[in-house]
């Protein structure tokens, strides 16, 4: 499937896992994105499956952030297809992505410290009864969302976000996606600034999120985290997809090679043997 890829200029032809179990929830096909003369993304293919964590790995400048912003509708794509649930869609802005059920959890958490947890979770999408904010509904729903993720570390949903630790803030940001019944959640470096225990909590949360049927894209530098929660790994190298493999089929060393050089000799051999 998807052989539209032209491997001539690719450092390594991307390897693809045949997913017979389920179809991708969200798929990008042959995405190109340039900023002036800088061609940042070259024919990128990406698939996010429901109930799975797909990790997007790559070195600085590989194009991870650009790809996420294309997915989130912040950058328009130059060429290529944006396919949601098998249907091509056009995403012109963050609102279009939001309407499809795509939620982005940014690295520099988009939370307002002076507001409390409930207020942050409903920010921009407040529930109203008439002219007035419907605080009771919002508080109940926020509580439900946090309970459904078995979040236990937050004392009160009326705590201001300023009083939360990094891990708890990440939790709130992720719980927001549950609240809005998101189909796809993009997590940009969710554990980058966290300690060991907090990373543990957030990774557990990411796993629970995927287990509930959501398609999760995890952008991360930390291969330990990636191997712990990801079902699939897509490696970017200089704006191209270096590999798209199941986590169980690769080793950490191979992924490091993919990130740093764009190919992994023994991976090509083993992967081609499985796909043939």
């Amino acid at each position: 499937m998807l052989s539209s890829h032209h491997p001539i200029s690719d450092p390594a032809p991307p390897e693809r896992l045949t997913m017979s179990a389920s179809n991708p929830l969200l798929e990008l096909r042959g995405i190109n994105k340039s900023f002036g003369v800088a061609h940042v993304l070259h024919d990128v293919d990406l698939a996010i499956y429901p109930g799975q964590v797909t990790a997007l790995v790559g070195d600085n400048g590989a194009g991870k952030s650009t790809l996420v912003k294309c997915l989130a509708g912040i950058y328009p794509i130059d060429t290529g297809e944006y396919v949601f649930e098998g249907k091509p869609v056009s995403v012109h802005g963050p609102k279009d992505a939001g309407a499809l059920g795509i939620e982005v959890v940014y690295q520099d958490l988009a939370l307002c410290e002076n507001l409390d947890i409930v207020e942050n979770m409903f920010l921009g999408r407040e529930k109203k009864s008439g002219l007035v904010l419907d605080e009771t509904t919002m508080e109940s729903k926020a509580r439900e969302a946090l309970t459904s993720l078995s979040v236990r570390t937050v004392k009160s949903v009326r705590q201001s976000v300023a009083s939360l630790s990094g891990g708890q803030r990440q939790t709130v940001a992720i719980a927001k996606s549950v609240l809005w019944n998101s189909r796809v959640v993009l997590l940009d470096e969710p554990t980058a600034a966290l300690g060991v225990a907090q990373t543990r909590q957030v990774l557990d949360l990411v796993r629970r999120l995927a287990d509930s049927g959501v398609g999760v894209l995890l952008i991360s530098h930390n291969l330990t985290d990636v191997f712990e929660v990801a079902d699939r790994i897509t490696a970017l190298y200089l704006g191209r997809v270096a590999a798209d493999v199941a986590t169980k089929d690769v080793t950490s060393r191979q992924v490091v090679e993919l990130i740093t050089t764009g190919h992994s000799s023994d991976l090509d051999a083993s992967a081609s043997s499985t796909t043939v």
């Binding site: 988009a110 507001l115 207020e119 920010l123 999408r125 904010l133």
Partner: peptide, 24 residues
């Protein structure tokens, strides 16, 4: 305290970037 506008004023004052990303 009780309207969406007021909530958004606090949000913009607290973190304009977060408010922008929230669609305000």
């Amino acid at each position: 305290g009780r309207t969406t506008w007021g909530r958004h004023v606090y949000a913009v004052g607290g973190n304009p970037e977060a408010a922008r990303r929230a669609g305000i």
